[in-house]
Simulated scan of single mutants.
Amino acid sequence: MIHPTAIVHPNATIAKSVEVGPYCIVGEHVTIDSGAKLLAHVVVNGRTSIGADTVIYPFTSIGAPSQDRKAADDEVSYTKIGARTTIREYVSIHRGTGDQTVTAVGDDSLLLAYVHVAHNCRIGNHVTMSNLAQLAGGVVVEDYAGIGGMAGIHQGVRVGRHAFVGGYTKIGQDVPPFLLVDGNPPQAYGLNTVGLRRHGIAAEARAELKEAYKTIYRSERNLSQAIAALREQVKTPEGRALLAFLEGPSERGILK
């Protein structure tokens, strides 16, 4: 179902059940899976794939060249949008910088109006980004994380699973999983308790994460000492996920 005012390149791969609304533009190397909807005035170009049942609202731009000064005109890079994701008005998602690189948004995520996702970002599944949240290049946002309105995330930062970043917050270092971070300068204020309960994290795991938070942020230990203590302390899958995040590679360091 393609509106007569839409411009769709004949080489684009579009499933029969896709809806392309008025004044949309779909480029040559675009693939759109079944049930997806481009409501109106949506521009999708570059080597972009859009998953099944994803809905994209007016004035969104997906797959445009990176704004990175290092981006080359002849590089081949990609943009991937998962299934059942909702992308609201005026969102911009840029393709990767560097040959064969990818900017990716996972399944079942919600990106509200004016969100920006820069080159080489990786957004997981079930992520919510509120209005005007901005990701610089190479940011990783793990599953079930939430980014508040007008929050800004520095390039190369990781935001862990089930973490929540409050509105207007400027994040310059990695946000560990399961935590609530807010303010300028940002501070960790304990667990994202509402989110953990909402997503069925067991009471045992929440109790362990609370003790882990105290070890990291409310003891006299430095980060290395806190990690050593957590190796002896955590038993649940959630606790081990927090430890793995802290031990993982980091460009910017852990918010402490």
Score class of each variant (00 low, 15 high):
residue 3 H to L: 06
residue 8 V to S: 02
residue 8 V to G: 01
residue 11 N to P: 10
residue 16 K to D: 14
residue 17 S to W: 08
residue 18 V to G: 06
residue 18 V to R: 03
residue 22 P to L: 08
residue 22 P to H: 12
residue 24 C to H: 07
residue 24 C to M: 06
residue 25 I to G: 08
residue 26 V to H: 01
residue 27 G to W: 00
residue 29 H to P: 08
residue 30 V to Q: 00
residue 30 V to N: 00
residue 30 V to W: 00
residue 32 I to H: 03
residue 39 L to W: 11
residue 40 A to Y: 04
residue 41 H to Y: 09
residue 43 V to E: 14
residue 43 V to M: 10
residue 46 G to C: 06
residue 47 R to N: 13
residue 47 R to L: 10
residue 48 T to S: 03
residue 49 S to F: 09
residue 50 I to A: 02
residue 52 A to N: 10
residue 54 T to Y: 04
residue 56 I to G: 03
residue 58 P to N: 07
residue 61 S to R: 10
residue 66 S to I: 04
residue 67 Q to E: 06
residue 69 R to K: 15
residue 70 K to P: 01
residue 71 A to P: 09
residue 72 A to P: 09
residue 72 A to D: 15
residue 75 E to C: 02
residue 76 V to L: 14
residue 76 V to Q: 12
residue 76 V to E: 13
residue 81 I to M: 06
residue 82 G to W: 01
residue 88 R to K: 10
residue 90 Y to F: 14
residue 92 S to W: 10
residue 93 I to C: 00
residue 93 I to K: 01
residue 95 R to H: 08
residue 97 T to V: 03
residue 97 T to G: 01
residue 104 A to K: 13
residue 106 G to M: 01
residue 108 D to Y: 12
residue 109 S to M: 07
residue 109 S to E: 06
residue 114 Y to S: 07
residue 114 Y to E: 04
residue 116 H to Q: 12
residue 119 H to V: 04
residue 123 I to L: 10
residue 123 I to W: 03
residue 127 V to W: 05
residue 138 G to R: 02
residue 141 V to E: 01
residue 141 V to D: 02
residue 142 E to G: 05
residue 144 Y to C: 12
residue 152 G to I: 05
residue 156 G to S: 07
residue 161 R to N: 12
residue 164 F to G: 09
residue 165 V to H: 05
residue 165 V to G: 04
residue 169 T to N: 00
residue 170 K to N: 13
residue 170 K to V: 12
residue 171 I to T: 03
residue 175 V to S: 00
residue 179 L to I: 12
residue 179 L to F: 12
residue 182 D to S: 15
residue 185 P to R: 02
residue 186 P to Y: 06
residue 187 Q to N: 13
residue 188 A to N: 10
residue 188 A to S: 14
residue 191 L to T: 07
residue 193 T to G: 15
residue 199 H to Y: 14
residue 200 G to F: 03
residue 200 G to Q: 03
residue 204 E to R: 13
residue 207 A to F: 11
residue 207 A to K: 15
residue 210 K to W: 13
residue 210 K to P: 14
residue 210 K to C: 12
residue 217 Y to N: 08
residue 218 R to F: 04
residue 219 S to P: 06
residue 219 S to D: 10
residue 225 Q to R: 11
residue 227 I to S: 08
residue 228 A to V: 10
residue 232 E to G: 14
residue 236 T to L: 05
residue 236 T to V: 04
residue 237 P to T: 09
residue 239 G to Q: 03
residue 241 A to G: 13
residue 241 A to V: 14
residue 245 F to K: 02
residue 246 L to P: 00
residue 248 G to P: 02
residue 251 E to Y: 12
residue 255 L to K: 01
